[in-house]
Design a protein around this nucleic acid. Structure first.
Lengths: 166, 166
DNA sequence: CTGGATCCCCTTGGATACTG
DNA sequence: CAGTATCCAAGGGGATCCAG
């Protein structure tokens, strides 16, 4: 078995001085719990599966065809994980050709709606992020060029980008 | 170079039949964009860094001490990624002992607030998820036991374990 | 049809050592 | 102090074969 029970080492109980902060709360203590869900929704396929199942109940092969690119191994794993977390419900029909239906549980649907807020945010701000990346890459290139040519005593203030440049 | 430019292979342009659906929209087409941010906020440390920087501007070592468990390599990588995405702002002070301050950009703060909704959801529903996991594990154990002992022809209707067991 | 088991590659991420 | 570069272990994830 590759997964099974998983451990969450690190900062789970090392809150140290536990204040009543809001951020301090979930960035250290609750992180171990948040991490589970976060890792799940962020893994390569869970999101897709949840999104598809939110539309309608689907069978294994149906999901496999729809997603196109997922291996049956990962689909099975993903579905089992989601099932274990109570996000999807698995129904087996004892017929001659095995038929298994997967559907989102209320919990799963609820999570999906929550996630959509994040997705929406991402879509709305994606241009800004893309722009930031381009700008960053440009700064890095400029810095590299400047490093390569030690002449022209330009103000060596900064690292990746001169603070005055923006 | 381990990172640098990253590729996003797979379902990015294979929308195939692009309907005007809501879900279909972000589960296939926009996924490639969402994936970037999702992978970023879901990676092991970005969330922690964002949360800490949302409280106040911090220095490298300060973050290193605060997070406790992160390697300087990952902290540097995480910060550079966040900087590249325009989520954090890096300020270098050209003083004798090098001093670098990191702070959240408005974009980063905005993302943080969006993420907190998801975190809140997780915290609120964590008990349900934990319960679902326990129930799942119990079902699997029961199934394993039943497989080992082929007697008692219980109705194999649904789920991984006999549906009548609960 | 629905997966589990196996092999294998590649990425993520930790530990360590070395610059500026 | 603030990183970068290198080495290396663990896990994610694809391909394939096989079983129920």
């Amino acid at each position: 078995m590759e997964d099974g029970t998983f451990e969450s080492p690190g900062n789970c109980g090392d809150t140290g001085t536990d204040q009543g902060f809001d951020v301090t709360n979930w960035d250290t203590r609750a992180d171990c719990e948040v991490r589970q869900i976060l890792d799940r929704i962020a893994d390569k396929w869970s999101l897709l599966v949840i999104a598809l199942l939110d539309r309608r109940s689907m069978r294994f092969t149906e999901l496999r065809r729809e997603i196109d690119g997922i291996s049956q191994r990962m689909l099975a794993r993903t579905l089992r994980h989601l099932e274990r977390d109570g996000l999807v419900k698995r129904t087996v029909h004892p017929v001659v050709p095995p038929r298994v239906d997967y559907e989102l549980t209320p919990l799963g649907a609820d999570l999906h709606s929550t996630i959509k807020a994040l997705v929406t945010w991402t879509e709305e701000h994606q241009p800004q992020i893309a722009a930031a990346r381009t700008a960053y890459d440009a700064r890095v290139s400029a810095e590299a060029a400047e490093t390569a040519r030690p002449e022209a005593g330009s103000v060596p203030v900064s690292g990746r980008g001169s603070g005055s440049s923006r």
